[in-house]
Amino acid sequence: MPHRIKQPPKAYSKHYHLGLGFHGFHRINYLEWGDPAKFNTQETLFCVHGLTRNAHDFDYFAHEMCKDYRVVCPDVVGRGDSDHLDSAEGYNYLQYNADMNALIARLGVTEVNWIGTSMGGIIGMVLASVAQSPIRRLVVNDIGPEVSRDALMSIAEYIGRSDEFDTQKDIETYLRGIYREFAPMSDDDWVQMARYASRRTKTGKWRLKVDNRVGDAFRDSISFFNVDMWETWERITCPVLVLRGKDSSFLSEDTAQRMLEGGPQTTLVEFEDTGHTPTLRNDEQVQVIADWLKEN
């Protein structure tokens, strides 16, 4: 049983910044953990969630790490408490990269340590690969430069296709089904995930906090190309920690090994009885990142 969060009142503060796209401005919600009085002297951990997830996925991790770091966790546009866009065309990596760059600038820092789960790892790899990147150290959680078509299609089957639910418990049951590879997850973790992943509608029903058009954009994108980012990977120069669930359907053992053979200085850590993705909700997974940050 993973150690539970004993979260003090107001352990984090909630903010937003404005992103800009072809449609106009949109609000990006983010959570900030740590002591504001120490922000100028603390390194920043910038934590970005997966395709259909939200900033609260990092609550356990951020709570444990904010004693030593400023921890910032955004909701990518179309997810969580961030705005929804007017068109599915806006949900693309160009927009996500621009929004995250704008948020880094808002924080008033020149360097960040990037913790990216799945989609968040892809965004991190892209930003780390460009000249004068603000990413000092990069942690990619169960994602790599190559993803199989089968793995992508498994997400395409459900993303953006959920309707209303009668209760929040129904939301929890649904999440347990589509995220069955997540580990570790206690019953309390599933309850918390359902709480932050859903909202009540005016009719009294419940809906997920993900714009259904995110799913439309995702299906359109994978119909044109596979995820092949090896050239991007080769351009990364900062140290990289790769986390992999040994039962992952997204980051294969062959891809993980290839990441060690070329590109940036890379460390690989694998977790038993875990698929896609390690949830960073226990001391073991958090400590791996904490130790690596101190050593690199």
Rank of each mutant, 00 (worst) to 15 (best):
H3F: 12
G160M: 05
F250W: 03
R199D: 09
V288Q: 10
G121W: 05
S249E: 06
M100D: 01
T173Y: 09
D68Q: 08
E111N: 03
A194E: 05
E111K: 15
G78S: 08
L280V: 01
L31A: 11
I135T: 11
V240I: 09
S148H: 05
Y30H: 03
T267C: 04
F22D: 12
E157H: 13
N29H: 15
Y96L: 14
R70W: 07
V112T: 14
Y96P: 07
L293A: 10
D273V: 00
S162P: 04
T266Q: 00
E111G: 05
W233K: 04
P74K: 13
Y60N: 13
V214K: 03
D228Y: 07
V210R: 06
S13D: 08
S223Y: 12
F39M: 01
L241H: 01
A183H: 10
Q168W: 09
T266M: 04
E253H: 00
F46H: 07
R176M: 15
W233L: 04
I222Q: 07
V240R: 05
K6I: 08
V210G: 09
V269P: 06
P134L: 05
L175M: 08
S223F: 12
S248T: 00
L107Q: 13
M1C: 07
G21T: 11
F271R: 02
S129V: 09
R244T: 13
V112H: 08
I122V: 12
T110I: 01
F225P: 01
V269L: 11
D189H: 10
V242G: 06
A88F: 14
L243V: 14
V140N: 04
F224L: 15
R27K: 15
S133T: 15
V71H: 14
V240N: 13
A88W: 15
L45W: 11
R176N: 06
H23Y: 15
A128N: 15
F58H: 13
A156P: 07
I135Y: 11
F182I: 10
E164M: 12
T266N: 09
E231K: 10
S248L: 01
G120E: 13
M185A: 00
Y12E: 10
D220P: 02
H276C: 06
D283G: 00
T279L: 08
T237H: 15
F182G: 07
C47K: 14
K38D: 14
R235A: 06
M65K: 12
K202G: 13
N92G: 07
F218R: 13
L107E: 03
R70D: 08
T237F: 02
D57L: 08
G204L: 13
G215P: 13
D150L: 05
D187R: 08
H23S: 14
V130N: 03
T52I: 02
Q285I: 08
F61M: 06
P184C: 03
Y96E: 11
Y179W: 11
E270G: 03
E146I: 04
E272D: 14
N97A: 12
V48Y: 02
R149M: 12
M65P: 05
H15V: 03
M193N: 07
I143E: 01
I171N: 05
V191W: 13
I171C: 00
A156N: 06
A98T: 10
Y91S: 04
S186R: 06
L31E: 15
T266W: 11
K209T: 12
E272M: 00
F182Y: 11
D187I: 09
A256L: 00
D59L: 14
T255W: 00
P36H: 09
R53C: 07
R149I: 04
S13C: 01
S186A: 09
W33C: 14
S118V: 06
T267E: 14
